[in-house]
Design a protein around this nucleic acid. Structure first.
Ligand SMILES: NC(=O)c1ccc[n+]([C@@H]2O[C@H](COP(=O)([O-])OP(=O)(O)OC[C@H]3O[C@@H](n4cnc5c(N)ncnc54)[C@H](O)[C@@H]3O)[C@@H](O)[C@H]2O)c1
Ligand SMILES: NC(=O)c1ccc[n+]([C@@H]2O[C@H](COP(=O)([O-])OP(=O)(O)OC[C@H]3O[C@@H](n4cnc5c(N)ncnc54)[C@H](O)[C@@H]3O)[C@@H](O)[C@H]2O)c1
Lengths: 227, 227
DNA sequence: CGGATTTTGTTAACGCGTTCACAAACTCTT
DNA sequence: AAGAGTTTGTGAACGCGTTAACAAAATCCG
């Protein structure tokens, strides 16, 4: 009974696959683009093309959320947009703290694109006394010691590490101690965190190294497969 | 005959799985760390721990490259480091061009960490006349019109898009026309490229949105599905 | 030398994600 | 109202990546 819209009968955790979660923001952006074009209804083909994915994959992904389309018709753009936004928590804004406001941290602080995705840079923290107290993109840089107070006061659950790799583990420890339970790590270092804390790592060097690998393979195409 | 070290008997393309390619740079860094610690030999367990992966996965990955370990002993750190570096093309430096030197492009230009990974930022390009001619991190910013000459002269095969999303497709077209065959795209936009050109996309907003999704799930554990 | 020990390289099972293909459900037309 | 046309939602097949398990190969030691 009371099976409102939970795929799982027991009503508890209905896990959406990681791969799907990673694509939902892409669909959201595609839906926004359609709205701007004045489109109010779309088929899975339309949306899939805008999002750059296979239509079957799109429908499969959406099926994890529920059944928000109409057979023979398609999806109501605005309705679907809202449902996805609700599912991934974009009906509210998420405050994040950036630790380390060097080159990368400053660029992230200045980025306007986060706000339309439900992300708000709420605080900046740095260990360098010369940076503490300065203002970057309208936010005053705080000391690392103030981290617990900041996290508590603004109810921050997401932290970004943009310090050198050598400081990454210490910063992660302090973030966790302060109450942060999700971390985006830009430093080229492995960080250990307790259970219940999520860590995602972005390594821009590796992205380029992967491209370089493929370039090397392309360059080696002078190989003739003949006998 | 002459089966020197190619797993495939016919000696032609031996494809290393994408997932493995993406981890090879991680192993490389772990090996460098071990070298700095004065370690000259290590087991798959040691290395796997340093790299943050399952030992079985590590051995499986390395097996795609060849058989560079010694049973009962382990791997020679320096030898394995060289073999991986050669495999992913890190015995040479790869010149890259960054298009769009705003906040993010400037941060990337200033990053010292690329050089130790075989990546060299060789040129900066921007469409804004006010930026062209200025010097960022020791490199003079060129005009978009000079892209073909730059790519040709420096034999650049990798380009980075750090422009607004609206310009991404046009920049990609120009990069490809200039001869670039690998693109790292930071703009939140889909870019279409011809066959033979690789594109990787880094979307920092999505990384944060994924974390926000999991945060919401953690927070939403008080959900009662009752009637 | 031979057996115990260590550790690799590889095979096989498993799980997750992608894709196909189609019945179910809706609209439109006559 | 019935049949033709659309499009969704999903079951099933497939492929890729991960993990466990083990035989093969090396060292160590008595
Ligand atoms: N800049 C890039 O484009 C780029 C690219 C790839 C990776 N990264 C990585 O991102 C991280 C930041 O890069 P960056 O170029 O901005 O470096 P940066 O040196 O410009 O800035 C680092 C900042 O961290 C601060 N810091 C140092 N230790 C700290 C600590 N314990 N607590 C708080 N703050 C501390 C420093 O004061 C400084 O402001 C590095 O790990 C780098 O490897 C950067
Ligand atoms: N800054 C960040 O932290 C951040 C985070 C996530 C994503 N991004 C994305 O990265 C890209 C760059 O971000 P940013 O903050 O550096 O933007 P920015 O506005 O600071 O810089 C953009 C630069 O691109 C140049 N440009 C514009 N059109 C161009 C064209 N056709 N050819 C060449 N250059 C052109 C501009 O002159 C400017 O210098 C954007 O797509 C943004 O969405 C940035």
């Amino acid at each position: 009974m009371t099976i409102l819209r939970t795929p799982l009968a027991d009503g508890s955790a209905r896990g959406i696959p990681d791969a799907t979660v990673a694509r939902l923001p892409v669909y959201l952006r595609a839906l926004n683009a359609l709205t701007e074009q004045g489109v109010s209804t779309c088929s899975s083909n339309d949306l899939a093309e805008n999002a750059g994915v296979n239509p079957a994959k799109l429908r499969k992904d959406l099926s994890y959320l529920g059944s928000y389309g109409t057979r023979g018709v398609g999806y109501d753009v605005e309705y679907l947009r809202y449902q996805i936004a609700r599912e991934i928590g974009q009906t509210q804004d998420w405050d994040v703290v950036i630790v380390g406001v060097g080159n990368l941290g400053s660029a992230l602080s200045a980025y306007q694109g986060f706000s339309t995705r439900g992300i708000r840079v709420a605080a900046l923290v740095d260990a360098d006394p010369k940076r503490v107290g300065t203002t970057i993109s309208g936010i005053t840089v705080s000391s690392l010691d103030d981290l617990p107070a900041i996290v508590e006061e603004r109810a921050i659950s997401i932290g970004i590490i943009a310090t050198p790799g050598t400081a990454a583990q210490e910063v992660a420890d302090r973030l966790v101690a302060a109450g942060v339970t999700s971390i985006l790590n830009f430093a080229p270092a492995l960080v250990q965190v307790p259970d219940g804390v999520d860590v995602r790592k972005v390594d821009l060097s590796i992205e380029l190294q992967i491209l370089a690998y493929h370039e090397q393979r392309k360059a080696g195409n002078d190989k003739v497969v003949g006998a």
